[in-house]
């Protein structure tokens, strides 16, 4: 079943108009050189960027006219994490659930973080110790912050998971854990700099100079295709 549809959607100077359909239950990896348009594509998927032409549909509705209740079904692990630095780890994790709760719940979360038990479970899942739960995010290391953002994503329980370069700041063992967690989600689009990992996905999208040039199963992709994808224009 198609959940996300691009209809000639493009961004002037960054991404040429493209047609694309993301289906439920499908894991997709996004490959391409730096500046090829991977982040722009992710941005169009979650609605943080508006297409200059064409449109992006979420479950058949224009993504930018979707109500919050529909938009919360798309979750993003941002490249720059986008945590609220002044809040604690638990408070940040809880912001993932703000879309599902009332205004009052959100305000209470600011005064006194809610549902610590659930927070502990998520922290454990992403491999952080419970001791960090009440610390401010601004004091954490890069890897720790990455996993707090991941816990927030898990708290959101989205239908479609997007991730922009989620492994770049992590050591190999941790990178593997994080990738496993992301792949456990029902459907995902993940941009990576690691073509060697493409066999763990069902579908590979390749971007080159702002153009979608590759859309195939990993098994159908040859070394030569990859070399061309990563060659200079």
């Amino acid at each position: 079943m198609a959940v996300l549809e691009f209809r000639r959607a493009g961004l002037t100077g960054r991404l040429q108009p493209l047609d694309l359909t993301i289906r439920l239950g499908e894991t997709t990896v996004l490959l391409g050189r730096s500046g090829a348009g991977k982040s722009s594509l992710i941005g169009l998927c979650n609605g943080s960027l508006l297409p200059d032409e064409g449109s992006v549909l979420w479950q058949g509705h224009d993504l930018n006219r979707c109500r919050p209740a529909q938009r919360r079904q798309i979750g993003t692990l941002w490249q720059d994490l986008r945590l609220v630095e002044e809040l604690t780890v638990l408070q940040n994790i809880n912001t993932g659930a703000l879309g599902r709760h009332s205004l009052l719940w959100g305000l209470r979360n600011l005064l006194q973080p809610l549902e610590p038990e659930l927070g502990d479970v998520l922290l454990h899942q992403v491999g952080l110790s419970n001791g960090l739960r009440d610390q401010r995010v601004s004091g954490l290391s890069g890897g720790e912050r990455q996993r707090v953002a991941l816990a927030r994503l898990l708290r959101q329980q989205p239908m479609l998971t997007l991730a922009d370069e989620p492994l770049s700041a992590l050591d190999p063992r941790l990178a593997n854990d994080v990738l496993n967690l992301l792949l456990d989600q029902s459907s995902c689009v993940i941009s990576l700099h690691r073509p060697d990992l493409m066999h763990r996905f069902q579908r590979v999208l390749g971007l080159r100079q702002g153009e979608l040039v590759l859309d195939a199963a990993p098994s159908a992709i040859t070394e030569a295709t990859l070399a061309w994808l990563y060659s200079e224009g």
Binding site: N46, G47, S48, P68, A69, Q70, R71, R72, Q73, I74, G75, T76, W78, D80, R82, L83, V84, L87, T95, G96, L98, G99, L103, G106, L107, N109, L110, Q156, P158
Partner: peptide, 19 residues
Amino acid sequence: PALIALRCAGVPAVINLFT
């Protein structure tokens, strides 16, 4: 960044501003 991130995650505007 956080404001945009939470908006994309479907957080209603008022509580997003607060948070």
